[in-house]
């Protein structure tokens, strides 16, 4: 593992304005995540872990503080710039898979390529790369199936392939096993471990301790602050 820093936040604050009342969600979170780390973010509901995840995922901007993603300050970017960052540097895996229902697995996987700013990828290469990724997650024989024809675990595997299509510097997984039975959950964790082994940086939000235990490092969030940050000793 190199020492290259993927995520560095400095006193991240997020305050929601609910009418007259200010509701703080993050009260100054400073974390650093190196390239190749597999990190779990834990915390009870209302702890601010979702807000932190949204900001790390460039879906939201902090009210105050800095967020450097891959050495770039992204805390002050506008919506279009954030969209480009998400497209180029991030891959998302959601609890509810979030596949487009009327598209095949293959079309879902190529979706992010459609929004590449440079519009470089040609159709043939795009398809080839998507097929490859679907092969890696074990769905090589189901590339033309629509999400409704796939099981939850299979849908989540399509989502993983989609998250990897633009070769992101960071994979963000938000409760990736939350909707799955134990067997499927284990399969998904297996894929994530393999990704980690091949050098991917993964940040995963979960509230299941046994899932979190499988990572290298656990960051526990409570009341908008980092409560605990410890390495698991796992490699």
């Amino acid at each position: 593992m190199t020492d290259s820093v993927i995520i560095r936040t400095d006193q991240l604050k997020k305050i929601y304005q609910m009418g007259e009342i200010e509701v703080p969600a993050l009260n100054g979170v400073s974390i650093t995540i190196q390239e190749g780390e597999f990190v779990a973010i834990m915390g009870p509901s209302g702890s601010g872990k979702s807000t932190l995840m949204n900001i790390l995922g460039c879906l939201d901007s902090p009210t105050d503080g800095q967020y450097y993603l891959d050495d770039q300050d992204v805390s002050k970017l506008n919506r279009a710039q954030l969209a480009h960052i998400r497209n180029e540097k991030l891959g998302f895996i959601f609890q509810s898979y979030n596949l487009l229902p009327r598209m095949s697995a293959l079309e879902n996987v190529t979706l992010p390529m459609m929004y590449i700013k440079a519009a470089a990828g040609n159709q043939v290469e795009m398809t080839k790369k998507a097929e490859e990724l679907l092969g890696i997650v074990g769905l090589g024989d189901r590339i033309h199936h629509q999400p409704k024809e796939l099981s939850g675990g299979q849908q989540q595997r399509v989502a993983i392939a989609r998250a990897l299509i633009n070769d992101p510097v960071l994979v963000l997984a938000d409760e990736p096993t939350g909707n799955l039975d134990t067997k499927s959950a284990n399969e998904i964790m297996e894929i994530l471990h393999n990704l980690h082994q091949s050098g991917r940086t993964i940040v995963m939000v979960t509230h299941e301790p046994d899932i979190a235990e499988q990572t290298q490092r656990i960051i526990a969030v409570r009341d908008g602050l980092v409560e605990l940050d410890h390495t698991n000793g796992r490699k």
């Binding site: 879906l59 279009a80 969209a83 497209n87 979030n98 596949l99 929004y115």
Partner: peptide
Amino acid sequence: TREIGIRQAVGATPQD
């Protein structure tokens, strides 16, 4: 709305 959210998450700009 959800489709729009998914597209935005994977990199669609407001313009797109």
